[in-house]
């Protein structure tokens, strides 16, 4: 639908003749004028914080007294020279990779199961969506109580069904703490991934599948060589959106493990919070934030390239 700009913007203007500048630029002025309030709100939450981060990163920020002073790249040296930050960066990458890939595999399995005509399909999909609405704080609190080594139901039932010997203190051991935070995210988001992929499955045209069946393709090669390539846009969108959110994860891990035991489940977002708001070292937190944004913008540009190549979400 080709709409000439002049026909859509400005509209019928009555009264005194408008100034020439308005006449010449009314399309642009209307467009940017409509966008301006939203852009201001978004600038306040993105560009303004970035400017201040850059300023703070080269300062020692004194929250109470007048001790704020320029310290050059000291903050960066401290953050980048701290092996803990590198291992937390690794933990963040591992968290995103594990959570998102498990969600994609489980989500695909669930989507394939739901992609049959059954009487209760609508009911099932409606109920599967519920974890999406549970606040991450609440789901983390529920998980924490269920995993409690003394009162928790998980240990009790695993023991009474003979699946486990001694009770496990899930959040006190790095490996089981990792299992717990990944399970929390997988529980919360797999249904969302499944519903995106289900929409993809339902939109896959039947002809290529039928042709492949005629050519003697088995169910597995049918899925691998025909269905999966056709679902690429939907896999891409699920992957990118989940990765973005997983990088931003804070509440679930903060409430469930608090980054522990030790610092084994500490993600960079938890470091940001601790350094800035518990140690009140705003300079170091800002330096870390800038490094995080740099690394993230690199990863995100790759992810956006994936998105642009396989979907039309960025098109007009």
């Amino acid at each position: 639908m080709a709409i000439p700009g002049a026909a859509t913007a400005g509209g019928a203007i009555t009264g005194p003749p408008p100034p020439r500048y308005w006449v010449r630029h009314r399309v642009a002025l209307t467009g940017w004028g409509l966008l301006a309030p939203a852009l201001i709100v978004l600038l306040i939450m993105s560009v303004v914080p970035t400017i201040y981060l850059v300023m703070f990163a080269f300062q020692h920020v004194d929250l109470l007294g007048p001790g704020t002073k320029f310290v050059g790249i000291q903050n960066f040296e401290r953050v980048l020279g701290d092996p803990e930050m590198w291992s937390d960066a690794g933990a963040t990458a591992l968290y995103v990779a594990l959570a998102v890939s498990i969600q994609l595999v489980f989500g695909m399995a669930l989507a394939l199961m739901l992609n049959r005509k059954m009487r209760e399909t609508n009911l099932l999909t409606a109920l599967f969506i519920l974890p999406l609405g549970v606040a991450p704080v609440v789901s983390a609190l529920i998980f924490r109580e269920l995993l409690n080594p003394v009162y928790g139901w998980v240990d009790f039932y695993l023991q009474s069904w003979g699946l486990m010997g001694d009770p496990v203190d899930w959040l006190a051991n790095p490996l089981t703490a990792w299992i717990s935070i990944i399970t929390l995210d997988v529980w919360q988001w797999t249904p969302f991934v499944a519903l995106i992929l289900l929409a993809g499955l339902q939109g896959v045209p039947q002809e290529p599948r039928e042709a492949a069946v005629v050519d003697g393709a088995g169910p597995l090669s049918l899925f691998w060589h025909v269905t999966l390539p056709l679902m690429r846009p939907f896999i891409a969108i699920a992957l990118v959106l989940r990765a973005i959110e997983a990088f931003k994860t804070f509440a679930g891990v903060y409430v469930l493990t608090g980054g522990g035991p030790g610092t084994s489940t500490t993600l960079l977002t938890l470091d940001m919070y601790r350094i800035a708001l518990q140690d009140f070292d705003v300079g170091a937190a800002s330096a870390l934030g800038i490094c995080f944004l740099f690394a993230l913008s690199f990863v995100m540009s790759r992810l956006l390239a994936v998105l642009a190549k396989s979907t039309d979400i960025l098109e007009d």
Binding site: A9, L42, I244, F250, L304, D316
Partner: peptide
Amino acid sequence: VRFRGRRAAATWILSTIMFPPAVSVV
């Protein structure tokens, strides 16, 4: 409204979802 820069503006608006709140909160 078909104004110049519209697509860039839309992409920028979408890209703001990538800014981690844990960074901007500081």
